[in-house]
Design a protein around this nucleic acid. Structure first.
Lengths: 194, 194
DNA sequence: CAGCTGATGTCAGTCACTGTCATCAGGTAG
DNA sequence: CTACCTGATGACAGTGACTGACATCAGCTG
């Protein structure tokens, strides 16, 4: 047996989500999170750069999934084809951890600072997506636009999905991928005019 | 003559921008900003909720301009027509204060916390734009999508414009509105395929 | 003239976050 | 087997952002 309990990061993430749900983000101190995880405040900051980041540990995995998926889409494919495939893969990942995603989103929705962090993570996803498109030979401007459009679609679809998931466990729940498909169609319709 | 020097907010904003440019955002303390403005730290926090907000005082005016412009677009107009008109008005406003916009953007580009704040301000613009579209009778989903797409176009166009404006005063500078037009066309092209 | 108001100052306090040094189980070299 | 090294943690003393409570006082109002 090791000197310390294993999985310190996991314990911190779990304790943080619990406390943010119980008391809210602002009313929770880092010292309390660390205490519930059986660690000290200083150790928390060795694992996470700040109090918000502990909720966003999974975003790097999501980013890798998006980039990998774009890289693997077989030619010929338009930039939007590649983005669509990437969002589909992301949707599948989140659908699997639906309950966790819902709880986490409830915490974020209740606090502006956390929304700021979420937005910059989404911007980072957009930038990574655009880079992956450029790797496929897409020109610079189109890559940025396709990535931003894709992330915009994802944001709106996710918002609707998480909103419906508020009443969890009920029948007739739509999948995230369905919302994404609908939003994509809506974007096409809206940009086609004029 | 009043008891205090007038225009406390203006002095704070000016002092903050100067110091953020001179030393960087992180190396500037609120006490220093207040001192340069001839006020105290406590007074700074009576005018601005936090150290970042002092750079974003103008965003409310921009939001009102967008909303007003959307409301005034004559029928018949597609949602994207209305968004295009709104972005045109915003471009004109920023083009007028080009030099200030450039300096401010340089500060934001150098600091992640400020980028987070900028992103949530843009999200707020998007939400307000979507509301204004709904007031015109646009359906909920289309309103959100048109607003997000418009803000995405604005983000990319602004980034390019501010980047070029890095070499200020040179001939052949393109207007922000031109970048917006180009980005709009690019978005249409990219979403049309598939 | 008395009183109210609103912008400011003063001061003490909480908490996020950082730098630095100490601790010590377990692996490694000799 | 012993001496050393390493990596994750703890302990502790800061700095600075932000808040709450109370004091001040020029100018307006009745």
């Amino acid at each position: 047996m090791g000197r310390w309990e294993p999985n310190a990061r996991g314990r911190l993430e779990r304790a943080a989500l619990e406390l943010y749900l119980e008391r809210g983000f602002e009313r929770t101190s880092v010292a309390e999170i660390a205490e519930r995880a059986g660690l000290t405040e200083r150790t928390f900051f060795r694992h996470y750069t700040d109090k918000r980041e502990v909720l966003f540990a999974g975003s790097m995995a999501l980013q890798e999934l998006l980039v990998d998926t774009v890289a693997r889409v077989p030619e010929p494919a338009t930039p939007m084809d590649a983005v669509t495939a990437a969002l589909g893969a992301a949707a599948a990942m989140l659908q699997e951890r639906q309950e966790h995603a819902r709880r986490r989103q409830a915490v974020i929705a209740a606090n502006a600072e956390l929304q700021e962090r979420e937005l910059i993570k989404l911007a980072s996803l957009s930038a990574a997506l655009a880079d992956a498109l450029r790797q496929r030979g897409v020109d610079d401007a189109s890559a940025s636009l396709a990535a931003e459009a894709g992330i915009a679609v994802f944001k709106i679809a996710f918002r609707r999905w998480a909103g419906q998931a508020g009443q969890a466990g009920q029948a007739g729940q739509k999948d995230l991928s369905q919302f994404i498909g609908e939003s994509f169609a809506g974007l096409k319709a809206v940009t086609a005019g004029t």
